[in-house]
């Protein structure tokens, strides 16, 4: 019957989701995005049927990592060519070269390791900032909420807010809060 065919089209229609990666941990965001890519959120999900959705991720340049993760975390690529086949790169280094790479790898590694992985990754569209092509953006029909609360930076507070912030005591005027001392390594990493 003709209308059953149309029902099938609407049931299996792919939704386009929008996700904002600003101030988000890439690993935690990956965990929230993957169910949408796989389609496990849908009641019609079946491992043999292709029910995954598209996800557009914006602001991947503005992702956040905790502690010293930008410095300590490294991606290793081994081409099996022995003299210099192993390439190690720190997270900050990769991010400076390609601002979507860290997020892409985080999603790729968090997914189930099977043959579907590449096809699911093809439905993930990553953009370093908010500029998304018009033809992609017009497909978007829903959005995924951020898994983490974005903190408010100090420069986002007004001068008045800063002055009125509750304080138990005032520092003495000659008290030194930051002596400016840095180790050699810290300088090396902070100012590449």
């Amino acid at each position: 019957m003709a209308h059953y065919r149309v029902q099938q089209w609407s049931t299996f229609a792919r939704t386009w989701w929008l996700f904002d990666a600003r101030w988000q941990c890439p690993w935690i965001s990956a965990r929230t995005i993957i169910p949408y890519l796989q389609g496990t959120k849908k009641p019609i999900y079946h491992p043999l049927s292709d029910t995954g959705d598209h996800v557009i991720v914006i602001n991947t340049r503005l992702i956040a990592m905790k502690n010293e993760r930008w410095i300590t975390f490294k991606h290793i690529h081994d081409s099996r060519y022995r003299p210099k086949g192993v390439i190690e790169k720190r997270a900050w280094q990769i991010h400076a070269e390609e601002p979507t790479k860290i997020f892409e790898k985080a999603v790729y590694y968090s997914m189930d390791k099977n043959l579907l992985r590449r096809n699911l990754m093809a439905r993930l569209h990553l953009f370093p900032d908010e500029s998304v092509p018009e033809d992609l953006l017009k497909n978007v029909s829903d959005c995924i909420r951020q898994p983490m609360l974005a903190p408010k930076r100090l420069d986002e507070y007004t001068e008045e807010d800063r002055r009125n912030f509750p304080k138990l005591f005032d520092w003495p005027k000659d008290f030194v809060l930051d002596d400016g001392f840095r180790t050699k390594k810290q300088i090396e990493f902070q100012e590449p």
């Binding site: 904002d20 953006l137 959005c143 995924i144 909420r145 951020q146 609360l149």
Partner: peptide
């Protein structure tokens, strides 16, 4: 799904933020 989704702007920050 909420029918207000039809007219909402998805680049709006309030929709993307954590609930």
């Amino acid at each position: 799904k909420d029918s207000s989704m039809n007219i909402s702007d998805y680049t709006d920050k309030k929709l993307l933020e954590m609930k």
